[in-house]
Amino acid sequence: MTLAEPPDDTALSTRCRILSTAARFFQEIGYQKTTVADIAKTLGMSPANVYRFFDSKKAINEAVVERLTGEVEAMIAAVADRPGPAADRLRAIIHALHRDSAERITANPRMHEMVEAAMTESWGVCHHHVDRITAVMERVIAEGVRAGEFRVADPAQAARYVQTAILRYCHPVLIVRCPGDIAPPLDGMIDFLLAGLRGG
């Protein structure tokens, strides 16, 4: 049996530095204006060296988005793991998703360029993120069913309905582009969704 090679800490460090630098450029000047040459120059390396780790700017953006979505997923999982009624936890998850997206887009107005690029060029990254968030909601809804709080036959389907219903409130691009007065207040939407889950 051959042992696997240990991870190259230097390579991992270089990848992390590339991603951190790229994320800063995406935030400061936008995804479209950022070039691999910009990233390489800031890091004191050649573009060819950057391409040793990522074969394109698209690949860099995918990795940046994956790191960002991973942070969101960890936050949501922590909320789901709290003690208390499933309804309270589901409400807290939706509020956390909305607050996180709104705060990030306010702090980094150019973030929507990065998100739009990921949606256009790397839909798989976004799709997997949505699937993982939906899976957390499904788990909470299933726990609510077992506790007698909710009456739904299919928690997975219910979670997909909830995810679709809150898209307007939690998608960074929609938060920027859609006026706040065209949708019901977030808590009103959550009340509506919880009523549906309780009524089956």
Rank of each mutant, 00 (worst) to 15 (best):
V36F: 08
A40F: 10
S56C: 08
P83C: 08
A86D: 05
G44N: 07
E73Y: 04
A74C: 07
R82H: 12
Q27R: 13
M45R: 15
A86I: 07
T42L: 12
L97H: 05
T34S: 12
D81C: 12
T69Q: 08
A40D: 07
A80K: 08
V36G: 00
I76K: 02
V79E: 07
H95N: 06
E73M: 06
S56H: 10
E73S: 03
Y51L: 13
R67Q: 15
L43W: 09
A87Y: 00
L43T: 03
F25Q: 02
L43P: 03
V36C: 08
E71P: 00
Y31S: 07
V65E: 04
M75G: 04
R89L: 07
A63W: 02
K57V: 10
T35E: 12
I76C: 10
P85C: 07
A74S: 14
V50F: 06
R89C: 01
A80I: 08
E73K: 01
D55S: 15
K41C: 12
D55A: 13
A22Y: 02
R89A: 02
Y31H: 09
A23E: 07
H98F: 05
A96L: 04
L19N: 04
Q32K: 13
S20D: 15
M75R: 12
D55T: 12
H98Y: 10
D55E: 13
F26H: 05
D100G: 00
A37Y: 11
